[in-house]
């Protein structure tokens, strides 16, 4: 009988402590995520003149606040997941700085009914943010291992409106085009012509330009309703190259 009590007691203690650990773990990440959001909001205010608005879209910030970034980074980097910095995710790829992710998402100017294409799934974090904002996200990853990992991760986290494909993103997904927004996070030496065709008139495409850990500027491609293409180089920071008066 005593033996049974000991087993029961141990079992209960185990459950309670596991629950506490789980709760404190998620609380810790939630608190970090909130700090990250505050930091992004502060950075947005600091660069409001450059990006042309005082704050990013509320839905974008809500999406950023909801997605558990620590689930998208390697286990040994979870503690750094909410620092405002890019992190390595293996295979020579990185998960972008949260501020840049928020800015790119905002630049897409998407709405609830939109369908978005992402080229370069990486960890799946950007897709998860987009999935909070739009009807459907199609994402293509060139590296098989990364694509499969991201697919599993997004399924585990319950994202139903993301379709991950492993393959060549250069041709986009012709059968599912046009897209309201396209984001090309894979390094591109030129904008693939098929992707421009697959952009809906009035849609936007965002391409971060730079190397690993280094998003130099964001290239924004706008397809006007008349089909005309306009591109803009958006520098994420306010940095006036001349000192004194300019």
């Amino acid at each position: 009988m005593n033996k049974c009590r000991v087993i029961l007691f141990t079992f209960l203690v185990g459950i309670v402590s596991a629950g506490m650990a789980f709760s404190s773990d998620s609380d810790e990440y939630r608190a970090k995520r909130e700090r990250m959001i505050e930091e992004i909001e502060g950075d947005v205010k600091a660069t409001s003149r450059r990006i042309g608005k005082k704050e990013l879209s509320k839905s974008v910030m809500k999406g950023m606040a909801n997605v558990p970034r620590h689930e998208f980074v390697p286990g040994n980097l979870r503690r750094s997941a909410y620092e405002n910095r890019p992190l390595p995710i293996g295979y020579g790829q990185t998960i972008s700085q949260p501020y840049i992710v928020a800015l790119m998402t905002d630049l897409l100017d998407i709405e609830g009914d939109d369908i978005v294409l992402e080229v370069g799934t990486g960890s799946g974090y950007q897709a998860a943010i987009l999935a909070q904002l739009v009807k459907k996200v199609y994402t293509i990853e060139i590296i098989k291992e990364l694509g499969e990992q991201a697919k599993g991760r997004l399924e585990d986290l319950g994202y139903k409106n993301i379709a991950v494909q492993v393959g060549d993103g250069y041709y986009g997904l012709e059968g599912l085009a046009p897209f309201d927004g396209i984001i090309v996070t894979a390094a591109a030496n030129h904008v693939p012509p098929p992707l421009i065709k697959q952009l809906r008139p009035g849609g936007r495409m965002v391409i971060p330009v730079g190397g690993a850990f280094m998003t130099q500027q964001l290239m924004l491609v706008e397809k006007r309703n008349d089909g005309k293409i306009i591109t803009k180089q958006v520098l994420p920071v306010i940095f006036v190259p001349l000192t004194g008066g300019h």
Partner: peptide, 13 residues
């Protein structure tokens, strides 16, 4: 200035 812009993606400068 560049270091102060680290959080806003300024490091590539």
């Amino acid at each position: 200035e560049i270091l102060a812009l680290k959080g806003q993606g300024g490091l590539p400068l």
